[in-house]
Design a protein around this nucleic acid. Sequence first.
DNA 1: GATAAGTTTGTGAGCGATCACTAACTTTCC
DNA 2: GGAAAGTTAGTGATCGCTCACAAACTTATC
Lengths: 198, 198
Amino acid sequence: MRKPAELRKAEIVATVLDLADRIGPDRVTTGAVAAAIGVTQPALFRHFPTKAALWQTVAVQVADGLAVAWEDALRTGEAPLVRLRALIDAQLAQIAATPALPMLLFSRELNVTNAELRVTFHGTLSAFRGLLAAEILAGQQDGAFRDDIAADDAAVLLTSLVQGVAIRWALGARDFALHDEGLRLFDVQCRLLAAGGE
Amino acid sequence: MRKPAELRKAEIVATVLDLADRIGPDRVTTGAVAAAIGVTQPALFRHFPTKAALWQTVAVQVADGLAVAWEDALRTGEAPLVRLRALIDAQLAQIAATPALPMLLFSRELNVTNAELRVTFHGTLSAFRGLLAAEILAGQQDGAFRDDIAADDAAVLLTSLVQGVAIRWALGARDFALHDEGLRLFDVQCRLLAAGGE
DNA sequence: GATAAGTTTGTGAGCGATCACTAACTTTCC
DNA sequence: GGAAAGTTAGTGATCGCTCACAAACTTATC
């Protein structure tokens, strides 16, 4: 079962994400990845110089996936409220599609072993908050959102909402639909943020 | 430097929390703890049968600290809004006093190695959410909070708020005052939840 | 009240397992 | 036939933990 390097590399990255989800990011050893693929452990080092480099490739792929999803979301409409909901929707969908993501954010791999990884993800999350803040600000200027609250603060509340539901989902038994629950809570928070009240 | 077991045990637990904060929960090896105290590594096993048992003791101590802080907070007043703010205040203070707590929640030690730990902390967080929900419900019946929103949902939004600010604090460079920022955001969210709007 | 006996606390050496990673050799495919 | 892709075998480091033993403190006995 010999494969060209390009394919094998992609297979390794996908397996890391799959294993990170199923057994936890910190249990993803090179041996476990190799066994899941069906090659010997040293074979991985034909394609990645170190384990850290492998993780970095994983991180970039995930971050790119998020960025693309955001761009798509922002194309769904013009109204800030629509775009805002699409952003949250996209983020929840990406998390559901990459269930290792929440755990990965707090893994030893990211926070201790691999400083570069941390920078990658931290920048990605900040970018998301920035996009949210921009839409909220636009919504306030439209009169759709109450403007007695700083747009940045509202953006923080929304990112916290997504993080909170993702964490509850990841740490718990994943016994609810992340996407539905997230959007439901978003709508609740949106009602609070809406202008006019009641 | 011989010490009675009681003292040594407490010293070990304190050192684990200190090290978990400074180098990350997953880098807290038995050797590191022993070195920080100034004893040999096997000495730890005079006081704890396994490393998991040591962590369990740490978890119970932290959970007890949280429970006590909540009780104190609920004694600060009668008005739901006052008590709610006191609860958030206490939680932020406890996190600041035990800075390893946020990382601990997502550590390998808790999520992979030690299933009992996970149960302990999960129950603790659920209890907190319950306390918040009770105060919000009381506030809605008082007419202080708008009642077009489920108290449970509002409680989730508030716990997410605390989690979110704690995570931003822990994952970032701790470059802001957790307590101040947390209470500030709480007041923002409280304004959204308040009855009457504007 | 000294001393013997027993318990508690700690040490030094080391075991078995696991990890990321390397070197040298073999197979597969264009 | 030569490079790419994979194997077998092995290295050094680190981990939690055990074991035999020593020192320190406590208790009981004469």
